[in-house]
């Protein structure tokens, strides 16, 4: 079972404590929103859960394995094979076309270029961005950028999708499309989704919300 769990996690940046002994558990297939005011530790929790960062104390478990003790290489491999990650503003490689951006994870995984490109095109089609496949990021609108970023996160069919303010830079309607794309694909693969957001309307797409305040949960609210 691909349960994701943080136990008594603490993380500080210099003198600011981002997380102070936070515990949270996310079941497989769940769609969970992490909300809270700015500076409450939302993004840090996502970084710890996804193995991007290691907490100073506490444990992070994924699929019955403790991942915060793994070394960087092992965590990188885990992220590449099991997780998909979407950030605000897409953060695509500016010099590559949309389809090349989407194909990157497969290329890094050692797949051939033609195969990777074909699969990437299919995913762009799925994301409704087939028409901008050969455009570079600078030529895309915010919504298109984000769809390409989502396609890039989905191409490896991840078990868990992490999204950090995926609609932060978009207007409501464009944001809605990106979210339904992300969540639709997740439901098809019965993937877990963890969304960090400050937008309550985005949080309403989730089955459950984890409210953070000053680095701890303010009470989990079950659906």
């Amino acid at each position: 079972m691909n349960t994701l769990e943080a136990r008594q996690v603490e993380k500080a940046f210099g003198r600011t404590h981002a997380l102070r002994g936070l515990s949270a558990k996310i079941e497989p297939g769940e769609i969970v929103a992490i909300t809270g005011p700015s500076g409450s530790g939302k993004s840090t929790l996502l970084h710890c859960l996804s193995g991007i960062m290691r907490p100073e104390t506490g444990e992070v478990h994924y699929a019955g394995e403790r991942i915060d003790t793994l070394d960087e290489a092992a965590r990188t491999k885990l992220r590449r094979e099991h997780f998909g990650i979407v950030f605000q503003f897409g953060r695509l490689v500016p010099e590559l076309t949309a389809v090349e951006n989407v194909a990157l994870p497969l290329l890094f995984d050692g797949h051939g270029r033609e195969e990777a490109t074909t699969v990437a095109r299919a995913w762009l089609e799925e994301a409704g961005a087939a028409d901008v496949a050969d455009a570079r990021p600078a030529e895309l609108s915010g919504g298109q950028l984000q769809r390409v970023a989502v396609a890039r996160a989905l191409i490896t069919s991840p078990k868990v999708i992490f999204a950090d303010e995926p609609t932060g830079a978009l207007d409501s309607v464009a944001g809605e499309r990106v979210l339904s794309l992300l969540l639709g694909a997740a439901r098809v693969n019965s993937a877990t989704v963890v969304i960090v957001t400050h937008d309550n309307r985005v949080a309403a797409y989730a089955d459950r919300e984890i409210v953070l305040r000053d680095g701890v949960t303010a009470g989990e609210v079950m659906a």
Partner: peptide, 13 residues
Amino acid sequence: PMLATLQAAGTPE
């Protein structure tokens, strides 16, 4: 930020 994103998505350093 772009490279950090690639790394976060599982690209080894």
